[in-house]
Amino acid sequence: MAEEELLRVEGLSKTISGTSILSDVDMVVRKGDLKVLIGPSGGGKSTLLQCINLLLFPDSGRIVLDGREVTFRRKREVLAYRQQIGMIFQEFNLFDHLNALQNVSIALRKVRRMSSRQAAERAERELERVGIWEQKGLYPAELSGGQKQRLSIARALAMDPAILLLDEPTSALDPELIGEVLAVIRDLSQRGMTMLMATHQMGFARTLAQEIMFMEQGRIVEQGAPQELLSHSGAEQSRTLSFCSKINELYA
C-alpha cells in the first residue's frame, strides 16, 4: 500500500500477575487506516489498546509513532505521548461532575493550557462534529448511551490525536443506539482519521475496515483484508470466520 506508516508495534508483551496477557504482538497501522481487532473476550484486545496508550506499561517491545520510537522512561514524555493517542472506552468514563462542554474542554484548558474561551470554542466544534452540540449543557447522567459515547469521542478528538483507539465502543450500548455511534466512526474514517478499534460488530468491520486482526490468547492469530478472512473460499476455514459465524449465531 502507498500510505505512510503511522504506528508500528513490535514484539509487545505484557504479563499481569503471572499470567501472560500479550505475547510478542507485532502490528502496523498506516495513516488513514481503520484497523479492526476482533477475538474472544480475554484475548488481550483491551490490554493491547491500553499498552499502546501507555495506560499500561508493556513489559517488553517497541512502539514507534510517526517514525519516532516511544520512550516511556520519563513521565513528561508519557504524558505528551498520550495526548497524541485518543482513547475511547467501552464504559465511556466521562467525567460525571462536568457537563458535556466541560468534559471536552477540561483537557484543553488544563493539559493544553488553552484559554477558557478558546477551549470552549474548540469544544463546541467537536460537539457539533459528533452531533450533540445541542446537549452541550447537559451532564453525563442526562445523556443517552449513544450520546455519551459520542461525547467521549468528541473529548478525544479535541486533543488532535494522531490516532484513535476504540475499545469496544458499542458494547455497553443498547442495540438501537449502536448505529449512531458507528455512523460517527464511519464519518471519521471517511475523513481520513486513523483508527484502531476492538469490536464485535462484524458487519461494520467487513464493510469499513482496511484490515482485520484476529486475536486470541494474547497473540495475533490471523490478519488480512476482510475479504480474505471473511470469505468462504479457500480450502480451510479461517479462525476469524469460524469465530464470526459463532458471534453471528449468538446475535442473530
Binding site: E91, A107, K110
Partner: peptide, 24 residues
C-alpha cells in the same frame, strides 16, 4: 475509569487528582 480517562488525555497524576478526582 475516571483516572484512566484522564490519563488517556495526558493529565498528569497531580492534575488528575486536582481537576478530576477532587471535585468529584
Amino acid at each position: 475509569g475516571q483516572i484512566r480517562a484522564a490519563e488517556s488525555l495526558g493529565f498528569s497524576r497531580v492534575k488528575t487528582m486536582v481537576h478530576i478526582i477532587l471535585p468529584q
